[in-house]
Write a protein that binds this DNA or RNA. Structure first.
Ligand code: MN
Ligand code: MN
Ligand code: ZN
Ligand code: ZN
Lengths: 169, 169
DNA sequence: AGGAAATTGAAATTCATTTTCATTTGGAAA
DNA sequence: TTTCCAAATGAAAATGAATTTCAATTTCCT
């Protein structure tokens, strides 16, 4: 079903609805430092730069995309370190890992406690985020009917966004 | 989020609720033959054997799993042909491609018109299928609210099945 | 039967991800 | 501050599933 899509879509992120991430930037970087200290890991220039850039971008990025942005200004930072730092950010709870239909691993700045699902346009690749309590409750209800307890879920709607003819087909 | 899971789970399929697939087996193989003829493709021994085995297994399998079953009795059938035949089956509408959290491509015998979603146990890997019209309607509703039209969706609930302590945690 | 076109399967390739390893660096302890 | 060692870095290699290549074989239309 997705075999064709894999090659076609190149998921680009839409700008976020809540640009309120900016004021918390320093707070987030503080969280990372605490996490590193707790774990006996070290704070490094690279990690600081990578985390800053990641939080600045603010949307769903692959390790490669983030690396490409960073290496223009910091030729001394390698892809591997970007890759590893994104994993660290996810571990620390500052980022969330996502894999959409194109099978690439992306990260977005999102605390582990927060949550949302995604609408993904197959034409332009834009990503729209939504959180819907009716959906969350219904998932729980269905799971319960099967004697199942939910730990995580994946809920992605693929189709056409408004700009790409979503309303009228 | 799924980084740990990827290595842990090896998704095994549960036996299906509807074993009514058996009587339609010949009908399905007829459908495949028609599809091949329409497309100008050829009917071959290999395709026949692979399709039969796939329909006989009846659950979510990777190309490799199916190949391993087949090559025991038919050492003359290669992995590549199994892989390509599964793609063909999906194209013909006799199979559906699925990618769960372990990121492996699986196929299940399911006509393109039919539909269901999945509950996947992170402990034992069992897969439970469900179809819920409330869920389908809610997805449409949410999409509409965003001016979005849905073509496909992915809805997977990961957690504990009843046997693995799903009810009480 | 003849022959063009499709199929097969072993091997090679692709490509994102992950690991390896020699070297460098951070930061706690002296 | 200097010492010292575990952690970090990054280039390169490895991994592994998915996909493509290509020479040999098979299908099936005439
Ligand atoms: Mn998101
Ligand atoms: Mn299924
Ligand atoms: Zn769009
Ligand atoms: Zn289970």
């Amino acid at each position: 079903m997705f075999s064709g899509i894999r090659k076609i879509i190149s998921v680009k992120s839409t700008s976020r609805k809540k640009p309120g991430a900016s004021p918390k930037l320093s707070e987030k970087k503080e969280r990372l430092k605490l996490f590193l200290k707790e774990k006996g890991f070290k704070s490094t220039k690279q990690r600081d730069i990578i985390a800053s850039e990641f939080l600045a971008v603010g949307e769903h990025v692959t390790a490669e995309e983030l690396y490409n942005r960073i290496c223009k200004k910091h030729s001394n930072i390698g892809f591997t370190t970007v890759y590893r730092t994104l994993k660290l950010l996810a571990e620390s709870g500052l980022a969330t890992e996502r894999v959409f239909a194109d099978n690439l691993t992306r990260y977005e700045p999102l605390a582990a406690e927060e949550h949302h699902d995604h609408l993904i346009c197959l034409k332009c690749g834009s990503i729209t985020e939504f959180e819907d309590q009716r959906m969350e409750r219904l998932q729980e209800k269905i799971a319960t009917e099967f004697g199942f307890s939910v730990e995580t879920h994946k809920m992605e709607l693929y189709g056409r966004c408004r700009k790409c003819g979503g309303g009228n087909i």
